[in-house]
């Protein structure tokens, strides 16, 4: 999956990945796709919960070794 923006939050624990992602979302435009890299095992579920409240969409989550790649579509 292609991403417009990559946010590297590896080796950061909660709430680091979510805060790094929300900072990127604030600067992004609707329709852009952000790939968040995280090694926090709580991040995939946390990001899904946050997205459902904040009005964005998690498109996919992949696990590559210890790293999760979480793809988020920024909605308006």
């Amino acid at each position: 999956m292609e991403a417009n923006i990559v946010v590297d939050a590896r080796n950061k624990s909660c709430p680091g990945p979510l805060l790094a992602l929300t900072k990127a979302v604030m600067k992004a435009s609707p329709g852009q796709i952000i790939m968040l890299l995280s090694t926090d095992p709580g991040a995939p579920q946390d990001i899904r919960e946050w997205a459902s409240h904040a009005g964005h969409k998690v498109l996919n989550v992949e696990k590559m070794g210890e790293t999760y790649r979480i793809y988020l579509e920024v909605l308006g």
Partner: peptide, 20 residues
């Protein structure tokens, strides 16, 4: 150590992002 290494943000950085 977790905070100084950047693995965890400082409590103030966390609050500042909430305030924004």
């Amino acid at each position: 150590r977790a905070i100084s290494s950047g693995a965890m943000p400082s409590w103030l950085e966390i609050l500042e992002q909430g305030k924004k």
